[in-house]
Design a protein around this nucleic acid. Structure first.
Length: 508
DNA sequence: TTCCGACAGTGGGGTCGCAAT
DNA sequence: ATTGCGACCCCACTATCGGAA
């Protein structure tokens, strides 16, 4: 199959808004692709590469050669070239990558270049990714979508699952099973503003667990072999020896556990996320790192214990298996209750101990891997401040032509000026985007720019955020975590905005 | 007919490793 | 030694479609 076939299908998918139409286009193409190229076609049309990543981003895609007039590149050829690009390393590798990229882009037409560019930057923007592709695979292979989803859960890599479905149908899909050493798509949580609201959502008694502000780890053990995966299913075994040792010390030798790894201070309180994140990301000198920043692991779920798969069991049975397999100090603290007051107190206690919040879990849901089901509901405290808009950036994609990303500042009472604390684009409705674009252009000052518009600091906006963290990027040495817009405050003048002192007091 | 679950899109701050400068 | 880039850790929120109720 030719790359141009994919580029055309992608364009057709983007042109139709209805998901059924998108699925139709994708399924039609999947019906034509041969078994050798099915995996590539599924990967590219759901915005992925067969190699997952090849060290090429937006910066290396500037200054590309002129396109060809005639499309002749096959999927196999493109994939082979991307493989070569991805395998380069060491001195001179960037020049080699550039040459190979030039070779690739010189061999394809303008339409294919545009498709490849979006694919390589991870911005396919055709309104269809993995979720829609699952339906398209089901349609093309004439199998129930639930069978594809189940296999995806267990295999974790849609191109492989899709190729299997197209080649062997339901019976081939059923051959996928939980395999120790191969990661499963992790279960995700919805969110609610309070424990009471979360309990209502679940309806009835629930298990409430501390939400630790660390890194999710899925840990597999077979015999002496322990493997640790992140939420995105990357292997980080060598970076977290503490987890490997803790699981290797358990009596059970056939295990899959779900949990969180976190750096704790000597007094047991959690380090800021930055500390845990840096430690987990570190690959060089891990033995030295673990002496200064030791990691602790807390498990909250068991997918396999004693060689038995537990995915389809209800939460309370999985948790009972977890408690039997793991010592209590390695199990995330948990309270089972239907009482909202007791739940709120458990939440408050978790916060007093410095943790991020809680996750409220329905005792009867199975492990819905890879889906953000209503079985898990996270609850975190929410801070809010009134800040001043200092500038705004032009949006992209569906926000093109509107000022979208806000630069936020707190009042500095010493000078009467404002100190930038970060940016946000979240929480804005289409209506608000239009309104603020008009306002910012009216308040614009300084030279016009196609990236950012500086505005007179006159608009006050109420910003919600999860916390304040230390920053080397911003002048105040602080930045907001997960900032989002709640509403504009036309009733407030900029000199009534919250001050840098107020923000500093929120630093941990 | 209305409601709501699931998806995609739109980007945020921070950190590391690596290659180039 | 410093800088820029890519990858990945954490992530919130809105708009939309289409099946569920």
């Amino acid at each position: 199959m030719l790359l141009i076939d994919l580029a055309r299908t992608s364009a057709a998918v983007a042109a139709d808004r209805a998901r059924t139409a998108k699925i139709g286009h994708l399924a039609e193409l999947l019906g034509r692709v041969g078994p050798d190229e099915a995996e590539i076609a599924i990967a590219y049309l759901s915005g992925e590469l067969r190699q997952r990543q090849i060290g090429v981003g937006w910066r290396r895609l500037r200054d590309l050669p002129e396109p060809r007039q005639v499309a002749t590149a096959t999927l196999a050829q493109v994939d082979a070239l991307l493989e070569r690009i991805g395998s380069r390393s060491g001195p001179g590798s960037q020049a080699a990558r550039r040459d190979l990229l030039n070779e690739l882009f010189a061999a394809v037409t303008r339409q294919e270049q545009a498709f490849l560019k979006r694919l390589l930057t991870g911005e396919l923007r055709q309104g269809a990714q993995g979720g829609v592709m699952v339906e398209a695979i089901a349609k093309a292979a004439d199998v129930p979508a639930a069978e594809v989803r189940r296999a995806l859960t267990l295999r974790g890599w849609l191109p492989a699952v899709g190729a299997t479905a197209l080649g062997g149908g339901v019976s081939a899909l059923r051959a996928f099973h939980l395999e120790v050493g191969r990661p499963v798509a992790p279960m995700l949580a919805q969110s609610a503003p309070s424990v009471t609201a979360a309990l209502e959502k679940i309806g009835g008694p629930a298990a409430i667990e501390w939400k630790l502000d660390g890194v999710r780890v899925q840990t597999h053990r077979r015999g002496d072999q322990v493997t640790v995966f992140t939420r995105a299913l990357d292997d980080i075994t060598s970076q977290v020896p503490e987890v490997v040792e803790a699981v290797a010390a358990l009596p059970d030798t056939d295990l899959v556990l779900d949990g969180e790894v976190i750096a704790l201070r000597p007094d047991g309180r959690p380090e800021p996320f930055q500390v845990t994140s840096g430690r987990v990301a570190g690959k060089i000198g891990v033995d030295a790192l673990r002496k200064t920043v030791p990691l602790s692991v807390f498990f909250f779920d068991a997918l396999r214990v004693g060689g038995a798969d537990l995915l389809d069991l209800p939460d309370e049975e999985r948790h009972a298996a977890l408690e039997a397999a793991v010592p209590a100090e390695m199990v995330t603290p948990r309270l089972v209750t239907a009482d909202a007051d007791a739940g709120e107190e458990f939440f408050a206690d978790a916060l007093r101990r410095g943790h991020e919040g809680v996750v409220v879990k329905s005792p009867c849901t199975s492990y819905a891997a890879g889906r953000r089901g209503a079985g898990w509901v996270k609850v975190k405290p929410r801070h809010a401040l009134d800040l001043v808009v200092l500038a705004a950036e032009w949006g992209g994609g569906r926000r093109q032509g509107r000022l979208s990303n806000l630069h936020l500042g707190a009042l500095d009472p010493e000078t009467g000026g404002f100190v930038m604390l970060g940016k946000t684009f979240k929480g804005l409705t289409d209506e608000l985007l239009s309104w603020q674009t008009e306002q910012f252009l009216r308040l614009a000052e300084g030279p016009a720019d196609d990236w950012v518009v500086m505005v007179k600091p006159e608009l006050v906006v109420e910003i919600a955020f999860d916390g304040v963290q230390r920053s080397s990027r911003y002048p105040g040495g602080m930045a907001l975590r997960f900032a989002r817009v709640l509403r504009y405050r036309p009733d407030k003048r900029p000199d009534e905005a919250d001050t840098v002192e107020t923000v500093r007091a929120l630093l941990p």
